[in-house]
Amino acid sequence: MSFISYLVNGVSLGGIYALIALGYTMVYGIAKMLNFAHGDVIMVGGFTVFMTMSLGGVSPAVAVLAAIIVCTLLGVTIEKVAYKPLRNATPLAVLITAIGVSYLLQNLALLIFGSNSRTFKSVVPVKAWKVNDTLTISGEAITTIVVSLVIMLALTLFINKTKIGSAMLAVSEDRGAAQLMGINVNRTISITFAIGSALAAVASVLLCSSYPQINAYTGAMPGIKAFTAAVFGGIGSIPGAMVGGILMGIIENLSRAYISSQIADAIVFSVLIIILLIKPTGIMGKKYNEKV
């Protein structure tokens, strides 16, 4: 029975990774850049919930809404101020700027909240589900799985059925051609950042509820793992990010349980390398043929 419980927790962790990975992969697909500051947007979301609940005393639902609004605004602002002027610069210049933004957010959080971890009060109202005597699934795990599945479904529908979604697909396919077809590229990129950051806010709430601690570096490691998950699934591919994220979560949790908790990260990254060696563009990545 313990296997099922590890598996469920793995899927739950994977759901969080998938939500973060979606932000990475959408931004990569459309703006062709690695947004290294994405992990720190998660941290900002977590602190927003923490602050509004402990100082403002608002209800969890309002706090979550506040986090989504703050992260969305933050994401769009970062894009406008730091990335937009570099639209035609080399990818490395954009990468370094993103790293700069990441340092900026981390150090702002350090200044405001100090370096000590704060205890995060879970915002999940769902009670743990006792399946039988040996198997109990925590409310956080259930909520995470349900919320991430619903969001993924909604996002898939949004991308494939709405006009803005089609515009996003078109821009990721060929930016120049999309512009010629009358698509407002700048607005599409802004919307992508807004959606990615809103997903990060949701992920932050779920992450901090499941692992109830928060500090300035909370977003860094999940950010890196989600980025890995996005590459694992094939960067730029939305279903790839979902599958990659969930697989990452399962592999991490199972190796933590059955092999060693200390080298779980090493195992996760080794699996990634092996997958990339077999399939160099990730599980669902597009294969591109080179024309000479």
Partner: peptide
């Protein structure tokens, strides 16, 4: 980027 992630993972 795939190469970058492999070196990071390493």
């Amino acid at each position: 980027d795939y190469l970058a992630i492999v070196t990071l993972a390493f």
